[in-house]
Design a protein around this nucleic acid. Structure first.
Lengths: 197, 197
DNA sequence: GTCTATAAGTCGATAGAC
DNA sequence: GTCTATCGACTTATAGAC
């Protein structure tokens, strides 16, 4: 079928546009980015852009999914572990725009009427659940301080990662992964506890 | 002078409007709130509102200063200490709108062109400096784990507080201050270290 | 101090030609 | 698949009457 080539081309173009939209939203956030701005940079008109995604909200969701997918492809080995969070922080240093995209949207999505509210609610719940399970295993193996509940520690570590990103965005000299790793070191069972003497 | 009464009335009206603007911004954030929305709720027109504050950005800055002032009046005793952060988190539970205002604006202000960029940069630097000094004193007094640098711990605790707010906004069942206090407990010198046996 | 009126611009979305 | 053209609604800000 000669049709397949045409469809593939259409999909490729859509992916191309999505990549550009990711960059633009990353720079300007949800409410600060217009369809016209994305379209112009992608080399088409606003109407042409809507042909591919239907509505603005639809485009936003697609952008978020693409971002998640990129993150998963980056560090598949440590996904769902505290070291995965640390690696993500280290990696985020090279993509400040995406950090801003995530932070801005995650806070704006607190509003239940926000189109990405459900997306973020589920994302955080999943992240905590997977991290908690991993921490529980590590505590059983004697790797981590077992005085704290894995569920609680998971929430704390995710919060620490998010909060470090906020401060890093405002002051780029802050070393996110170094701070994260330092707390992590204090919570490892083999190093926990102050010097006895 | 009969003039004084008139001026006082004008100031009172301005304060009244500011209080309303605080609520509205708290609900919808900076970019999501129009002057007309604030004006309508305050019982005047958009032009009347601008008479008091000149520009939209100016109103925003006034709202932020007012918010800071309210926070300082709340817990003057523990200001600049880790217990102050904990108290703030406990208090924030009753004002979700203000939590959203802070989080949304702090992340949006990462953009250097944002009208509140400098405000937040300075605010975080000040908070870290004051908290760090307090932690240093407490470490010297043997109250806190001294294996971690006070500067680093200050950054970590501020980040934890911010990150917990993000997760709480998305899932109100998360107990912010409980999580914060739990980590704090592990970092106190008199409780640090895992059970020996 | 507050109003009406309006300038000058943005936005998302749709219709219809090609 | 992309375009032009356009709609209706919204925005901040200003000018000038009262």
């Amino acid at each position: 079928m000669a049709n397949e080539g045409v469809v593939a081309k259409g999909i490729a173009r859509r992916e191309e546009i999505l990549e550009i939209a990711l960059d633009v939203f990353a720079r300007s956030g949800y409410r600060g980015t217009s369809l016209r701005e994305v379209a112009e940079i992608a080399g088409l008109t606003q109407a042409g852009l809507l042909h591919h995604f239907g509505t603005r909200e639809n485009l936003l969701v697609e952008v978020l999914r693409r971002k998640e997918q990129l993150g998963r492809e980056e560090h598949p080995d440590v996904a769902g572990t505290p070291y995965g969070l640390s690696a993500a922080l280290r990696n985020n240093t090279s993509t400040p725009g995406l950090v801003e995209l995530h932070s801005v949207l995650a806070t704006q999505a607190a509003d239940e009427s926000h189109p990405a509210h459900e997306y973020f609610t589920e994302r955080y719940a999943n992240m905590r659940a997977r991290l908690s399970a991993d921490l529980r295993r590590r505590a059983s193996a004697g790797e981590f301080d077992s005085r704290i509940d894995p569920d609680r520690l998971a929430t704390i570590l995710v919060a620490l990662a998010d909060g470090l990103q906020v401060q890093w965005m405002l002051d780029g000299s802050i070393d996110m992964s170094a701070h994260f790793d330092e707390l992590l070191g204090l919570l490892r069972a083999d190093t926990a506890g102050p010097p006895v003497a």
